[in-house]
Computed example of a mutant assay.
Amino acid sequence: MSPFRSGNGAAWLDLLSTLEGRYRAQQFNTIGTTGQLRAWLRANDLEPRAAVTVADVERVAEARECLHRLAVARIEDCTPAAADVRLLNRLLDGDQGLRVTGPDLRPRRPVNVDDALARLARQAVVDLSGHGAGTLRACGDDTCSSIFLDTTGRRRWCTDLSCGNRARVRAHRRRESGPAAQAPGSRGTSSSPLRRR
């Protein structure tokens, strides 16, 4: 089992989940070392041929936060910051071209981390522009900052097994403790999915 969160619908969205506790005082970066970043890239079929450096870790963290801001802007139907659009274009500049190898037509490994980031950026552009397979949504659990691709139009949580169960348990406990304990309008999801910022 992978130590990294996945299941958000695209690797670039799984990248956003590598910063745990995004809206809390204490955060944990699950790709904060060169070894962790290489492991995450390997888990997402993006392991580069070149070594992963400390500078790569810093660039990926910067790219992750840029992509998160762009996704939030898309969800909230706001104009993205010009600096984020410029950084997204710089990420796309790192594209070394996609080639396939062997009879199974697997994409070749990225040359370096910038090449891997360019592939993630390319995925992001498709989803951010509304041309992807689903709709970007924020997890309905108040304690989660994940953003996922909803291909059904009914999905409420990034993962039903953790966030969905947590939200249902909280809603059940509020119902069981009576109306005095239930906040007005509370139904186990946040009133504004990104209000935690």
Rank of each mutant, 00 (worst) to 15 (best):
L120N: 15
E47N: 07
T53G: 09
T79K: 07
P184N: 02
D95K: 12
V125M: 12
D77N: 08
A63D: 05
E76C: 06
D45R: 15
T151W: 02
C163G: 05
L87Y: 11
N165G: 10
L67W: 02
A138H: 07
W157L: 00
D141C: 04
C139Q: 00
S2L: 03
S192R: 14
V85R: 02
L88Q: 04
L67I: 09
R38P: 06
G140P: 02
F148W: 01
L67E: 04
R166V: 07
N165V: 15
A50L: 09
L67G: 05
R5F: 06
D14P: 10
A10E: 08
A25T: 14
N165I: 13
E58S: 14
A124S: 15
A39V: 04
L88T: 02
T152V: 03
R86G: 06
E62S: 13
R108P: 00
P184M: 01
V54L: 13
R86V: 11
A61M: 08
D127G: 06
L15M: 11
T33P: 07
T151G: 03
N89T: 08
S145N: 01
T53K: 15
S129C: 05
V57S: 07
D14Y: 07
L105E: 14
L120G: 13
Q182E: 07
D84T: 01
L15W: 06
A50N: 10
T79M: 04
G9F: 06
P48G: 11
G35A: 14
A73F: 04
S186K: 09
A167H: 03
T151E: 09
D77M: 06
L117I: 08
S17I: 04
W40C: 04
S191E: 09
G132A: 08
P107C: 08
L88W: 04
Q96C: 15
P110Q: 05
V60R: 01
R74E: 10
M1L: 12
A81M: 05
R109V: 06
P3C: 03
T30S: 14
Q182R: 13
S191K: 12
T135R: 13
R166T: 13
D142I: 06
A83S: 08
